[in-house]
């Protein structure tokens, strides 16, 4: 049997590739990279909002926020587990992250100076993540697709909670409304950048589409996100910081302004407001915990020997 043709048949028929199936090396490597970066994003993504757990302004908000950040740790776990089905090693992937050799979503390199950021991250950042991730529930690699179903359900819940926080704040004091608008101003453009560079400049898109790892282009998903967000912003009563944002009846979509890709590339390459801090935080937690992991491993070995 020709393994490669069988693989292509499975992918073309929209069936799932499973861990023990034959797959091209490039497919495996692309998936490991994408899933690992996704897992790292969940783990680094715990920090900007985790920043507010100790100061959440009501006990209900504290519970919601803590549960959300906990979910992100859980998402990281499912995703590292999916990467391990491809032969990757979680410890090795973590090393790549803390040594800065593997990337995570650049959005988490922005700071969260006010509590409105918690709401706007839920609304816009999780909203953008959902647009990116829902199609991954049908991605060609089975374990990744199944992990994404659960991740997307939880992300959608987070988005709703974020939006509900913003609605509540908009019904509050003038100071609170100004906080929300300020946070929207800061997060809108970075959220649009979450979909990655324009299709014309996206190096990985074509092959990933062919392998059905990716199912829509960056620009298609970005457009979907803009169209989804505009009515939500209106309902909320905030202004999106783009004077060129306008409904285009002919296209049936919103036109929007030029994204500052030079900022995107600066942040990707390490010069964002929090790049150093985020990786250092992760590295410190990892290093401080080494003695605990060593103890657990040693204890398990002793138990095994005794058995």
């Amino acid at each position: 049997m020709d393994l490669e043709r069988e693989f292509e048949r499975v992918v073309a028929a929209d069936h799932r590739v499973e861990p023990r199936d034959w797959m091209p090396d490039g497919y495996r490597a692309t998936l490991v990279r994408q899933i690992a970066q996704h897992a790292h994003s969940e783990i680094i993504g715990m920090q900007p909002e985790g920043n507010w757990i100790s100061r959440a302004p009501s006990l209900r908000r504290k519970a919601i926020l803590l549960a959300k950040v906990q979910d992100e740790a859980g998402h990281g776990l499912y995703l590292y587990a999916a990467a391990e089905t491809l032969g990757a090693d979680r410890a090795e992937l973590t090393e790549r992250l803390v040594e800065g050799r593997q990337k995570y979503s650049s959005i988490f390199n922005y700071p969260t100076p006010t509590y409105a950021d918690v709401g706007v991250i839920g609304w816009l950042v999780d909203g953008a993540a959902i647009c990116n991730q829902v199609p991954l529930c049908r991605t060609s690699y089975g374990p990744y697709a199944r992990a994404m179903i659960r991740v997307c359900k939880e992300e959608s819940f987070h988005q709703r909670q974020g939006y509900e926080l913003l609605m509540t704040m908009m019904s509050g004091t003038r100071q609170q409304r100004a906080m929300v608008q300020d946070a929207v101003d800061r997060w809108w453009w970075p959220s649009l950048m979450m979909f990655g560079p324009p299709d014309a400049e996206s190096s990985n898109t074509e092959q990933s589409m062919l392998w059905r790892i990716k199912r829509h282009t960056n620009d298609e998903l970005r457009q979907r996100f803009v169209d989804m967000s505009v009515p939500q912003a209106e309902k909320l009563g905030v202004t999106l910081p783009d004077p060129d944002l306008v409904w285009n009846a002919e296209r049936g979509h919103h036109d929007f302004g030029e994204i500052d890709w030079s900022e995107f590339w600066r942040v990707v390459k390490g010069d964002g407001p929090c790049n150093q801090q985020r990786v250092a935080h992760r590295r410190r937690a990892h290093e401080d915990g080494a003695w605990v992991r060593d103890a657990a491993a040693e204890y398990a070995r002793k138990k095994e020997r005794a058995a």
């Binding site: 783990i43 715990m46 920090q47 985790g50 757990i53 100790s54 504290k62 803590l66 549960a67 950040v69 906990q70 740790a73 859980g74 990281g76 776990l77 590292y80 935080h281 992760r282 410190r284 937690a285 401080d288 915990g289 080494a290 605990v292 992991r293």
Partner: peptide, 20 residues
């Protein structure tokens, strides 16, 4: 909750947050 994102393992981030 101060441990959240600082635990020795992800499993422990989840567990301590759960207890909190």
């Amino acid at each position: 909750a101060e441990w959240c994102s600082r635990a020795p393992e992800l499993e422990e981030d989840v567990a301590l947050a759960n207890i909190a």
